[in-house]
């Protein structure tokens, strides 16, 4: 699986962003329906069936693929909604369905054999046994790797499995193992697995105080900012907390993932596809990031050195702090 050219998989929160990503050089875009069947169920985001069909036509006309994320866990007694989403994605001509729930995987495997199945990061399959189980049971063709593995571990994993791997290289970073984190529902009642949202916006408040602004989620103070200091979105795991007599960003600093410097390493580790996070981001952002990563991936494919790759991606910091995350072992 190491021989081919690496595929660049890019986010599309709206039809306009889909077109922007395709035009900026995405080999594939991923998107979801405007409901709780996908893990970016934010107000105003995502696709209707009609928009998806148009998006698929546009992408295919431009030589790109469309991967549809139906990657939340189906609600009891309502599995039909998730099955219907998979049926619609198949009818629209999606190249692959990205799923995590056994119920959804089973439905697609049995009813839509022509559509590739990708195992979502929400399934948190990180071992050869787990991935093997999904491959044997549902015929998954690719696994999106949980963001807990180092590059060395990914290389070892790729030697032990038969399916393709896709690795996140840029954007937001979950610190917790995805698909197995209930912090959001603990605080707000809504969670990625149940509702496709983490730290939902309707529970967010920015409260101005005499000499600061507090960012709260469901009344819990997640961070506090000085006047004029850039504020952050109160995502639970990126908050400042007190523990053991210390006040710190206990779980993770407010950083985002940038594994641009590891593209060559990931290729050597046998990774098939590189994924950019950010279906909630605007088309300006997506265009810029996709363009830069397109250049970087092409440069890596042509044997470009680390200095060249760094130069290409230098503008992609957005002013925010970045980390290579778990790809580098000392992150743990």
């Amino acid at each position: 699986m190491t021989s081919g050219r690496m595929e660049l998989v890019c986010p599309a929160g709206t039809p306009a962003t889909l077109r922007a990503a395709v035009q900026a050089g995405a080999d594939a875009v991923y998107c979801g329906f405007r409901d709780e069947t996908n893990a970016r169920n934010f107000p105003g985001l995502n696709f209707s069936a009609e928009e998806l069909a148009e998006g698929v036509r546009f992408a295919h006309d431009h030589g790109s693929k469309v991967l549809v994320a139906i990657n939340t866990f189906a609600r009891v007694n309502d599995v039909g909604l998730w099955k219907k989403a998979a049926d619609t994605a198949a009818e629209c001509g999606a190249n692959a369905i990205i799923a995590a729930d056994i119920a959804v995987l089973d439905h697609v495997a049995k009813n839509h054999k022509q559509v590739r199945l990708h195992l979502s990061v929400q399934a948190a399959a990180a071992t050869p046994e787990a991935i093997g189980f999904y491959a044997t049971s549902f015929g998954i063709r690719r696994v999106v790797l949980p963001r807990v593995l180092s590059v060395q571990e990914i290389a070892a994993l790729n030697r032990a499995i038969e399916v393709e791997t896709e690795a996140f290289v840029f954007g937001g970073l979950c610190v917790m193992i995805e698909g197995r984190c209930y912090l959001s529902s603990y605080a707000t009642g809504k969670s990625p697995n149940l509702n496709g949202v983490c730290s939902p916006p309707e529970m967010v408040s920015y409260d101005d105080e005499p000499n600061s602004t507090a960012a709260r989620l469901s009344g819990f103070t997640i961070d506090r900012y000085e006047p004029g200091e850039p504020v952050g979105y109160p995502t639970l795991c990126k908050g400042k907390f007190k523990a053991g007599g210390k006040t710190s960003y206990l779980f993770e600093d407010p950083v985002s993932l940038n594994a641009g410097g590891m593209i060559a390493g990931l290729k050597a580790a046998g990774v098939t596809a590189l994924k950019i996070e950010g279906r909630q981001r605007g088309k300006g952002y997506v265009t810029e990031v996709v363009r830069a990563f397109r250049k970087a991936v092409d440069a890596v494919e042509q044997g470009g050195d680390a200095i060249e790759i760094d130069r290409i991606l230098a503008g992609q910091s957005e002013g925010s702090r970045q980390t290579a995350g778990a790809y580098s072992k000392k992150w743990r």
Binding site: F73, A74, R75, V76, N77, D78, V79, A100, D101, I102, A103, D106, H107, A123, A125, T127, E129, A130, G132, F133, Y134, T136, G179, R180, N193, L194
Partner: peptide
């Protein structure tokens, strides 16, 4: 899920870390 291939066919308990959210799964 790592444990499933080696335990399938013999009785087991699924713990709260395994994502069983609906009757189909």
């Amino acid at each position: 899920v790592t444990a499933l291939p080696s335990r399938s066919g013999k009785p087991f308990v699924t713990g709260p870390f395994l994502n069983v959210y609906n009757e189909a799964s």
